[in-house]
Amino acid sequence: MFDDQEAFQGLNIEKLSYQHHGSEEVLDFDLRVEPNELVAILGPSGVGKSTLLSLIAGFEDPASGTITFEGKKLNTLSPSERPITTLFQEHNLFAHLTAEENIGLGIHPGLRLRDQDKDQITQALNDVGLKGLEKRLPAELSGGQRQRVALARCLVRRRPILLLDEPFSALDQDLRKDMLKLVKDLHKNHDLLTLMVTHLKEDADAIADRIVHLS
């Protein structure tokens, strides 16, 4: 079994179980994701889609089971030590910081930025199609633009795993299409392993290499 894990270079979730605080119900997860694979996790609300992402990111602690990536166990690592970056449905950006600063946090968590870091931020903003909006506050951006800024921060963090938790459910249909395309492009161009949780089948169909149904 150890050899097996050693050999598998993707994300391996094995016999992972989780119990909500004060609840009887136990959620169990088993999932393998290849490197560079884009997997959509589909299912009705309440089956623990988001919980799975929280467990992978380290925001929740599993009762048992293991999470490995490139053969290394992630369970004991703190959220910031994991090779993971997450995009939430909302509140990804700190409301009092500009787009530039919000992205900058992905480069240095204390926001002590050098000149080349600023260039990197400009580049990331270009990549998500928001050229020139460095100084905007989140309130001065549309919902779609805010998610783009958050994606830009995911990019500058250069983590191999991207987790998307219902990232565009709050956006209207046309905007969602654009955003999904953007995610697909970023996923390809940056060699990411991407997991997207959604309750919309059409979103999953639009970009996923593989769809996993949770029930």
């Binding site: 990111a57 380290g58 925001f59 703190s78 959220p79 910031s80 030590e81 994991r82 993971i84 970056t85 997450t86 939430f88 990804n92 700190f94 946090l105 992905g106 968590p109 204390g110 963090r157």
Partner: peptide, 9 residues
């Protein structure tokens, strides 16, 4: 969650 993931002290 964001501060934790970004590794902010």
């Amino acid at each position: 969650r964001t501060t934790a993931q970004l590794g902010m002290t």
